[in-house]
Write a protein that binds this DNA or RNA. Sequence first.
DNA 1: TATTGTTGTGAGAAATCTGTGAAGTTGTTA
DNA 2: TAACAACTTCACAGATTTCTCACAACAATA
Lengths: 226, 226
Amino acid sequence: MKNLHVLIVDDEEDMRDMVQMYLENAGFTCSQAGNASETYQMIEDKHIDLILLDIMMPEEDGFQVCERIRAKSNIPIIFLSAKGEEWDKVKGLQLGGDDYIVKPFSPGELTARIHAVLRRTGSVEAIEQPNKIGRIFINTKGRTVTVDGNQVPLTLKEYEMLLFFVKNKNQALSREQLLEKIWGLDYSGSLRTVDTHIKTLRMKLGAGDYIQTVWGIGYKFEVPNE
Amino acid sequence: MKNLHVLIVDDEEDMRDMVQMYLENAGFTCSQAGNASETYQMIEDKHIDLILLDIMMPEEDGFQVCERIRAKSNIPIIFLSAKGEEWDKVKGLQLGGDDYIVKPFSPGELTARIHAVLRRTGSVEAIEQPNKIGRIFINTKGRTVTVDGNQVPLTLKEYEMLLFFVKNKNQALSREQLLEKIWGLDYSGSLRTVDTHIKTLRMKLGAGDYIQTVWGIGYKFEVPNE
DNA sequence: TATTGTTGTGAGAAATCTGTGAAGTTGTTA
DNA sequence: TAACAACTTCACAGATTTCTCACAACAATA
């Protein structure tokens, strides 16, 4: 996969840094802009593959910025909006936004949407997604999981967990790693929460012993015959 | 592997000394700083490859120190925080920290994280992992061990012991050394505990006489034909 | 060979970790 | 607001690992 450059636009530095960290972990290169004029300058100066654009910003807000960018460029734009912030999905997308994400979001959600947008806009050759693993079939577009032909309804956390496991199959993963990647760096709850989700995932995936316990460490996803 | 220089920053001398001992045993060169100003001076004076930075310090705390260092340098920084200490992962990492470790930690955990950070930041060429030794195959990602093609289930201590033996093969290792490296400096149990683990390891590794008794000293890991 | 100190080993106690049901929280939807 | 789903926490039983101990077996030394 070629190296993709994402521009993060947000007036809060903390938020920019956090997003950048998430993205760099996922293999993206990042630049930051704290306001509208910095944004325009960045776009002139560098090759940007995608823009993450916060809506609430002093001076020009995200919608205005989007409009001005669209006047001369088709760079994919994903809007960021804080939860509860009053905003109009329709408006954003009409202005040429390609998607939107509501804060707070998990690292997995962020990268998933970026990949989806890049694929959709054709900016990048289809990114191969894991699909069939043993008797589990994961449809990342539809966000559905099928086991032995039967669709299994997974909750958000279960789904992200399964995806992360599949991406790192045959690797022992600690609870800390799972929490950090799926819940985000700022999660401060109990480690044992992972156990509970493991329980339900195991149950939903049925027989197959996909998820092994690595005693004293955490868990590992293994495919029986591979 | 080139000689890497680690700066240990902590206001407690005991902690600094302990960490230094761990690191020197692992082949690092160390310097110490007990407060913020010493830290800045060290960075000016010496070539430092990585900083271990305690968060709780009188006067300037670790976060502030990190911020000031980041203002002019990209030296990798790993935060140290005592268990239970209220601290914010996100804050630390946003300020430019590369990782964090919660005290108390084992020597193995410490060096593993340092290596990971150095690899990630590109400070050092990937450090080769032990893999095949005689008829033993160690998969560090999956944390599995195979002997003659058969997977052998090892407990945590057994696994860490084997790894340590392999890293120091053909060297006579005292029980004290083993306890210090695998259990940590604060272990206060019986020396003979080692014997018991040696017993089970020998049994699980099967024929091959990998682990030799060095009478009056301790044990040694040897590979038959090498 | 007798003596002394060291190591091997089995058994069981102690410590630690995981699985799980149930209850509590939070957030969403109608 | 009530009903519901998702998520988290808790507590305890059960499983697994780790440690200790006692004694047998062994090596070194005189």
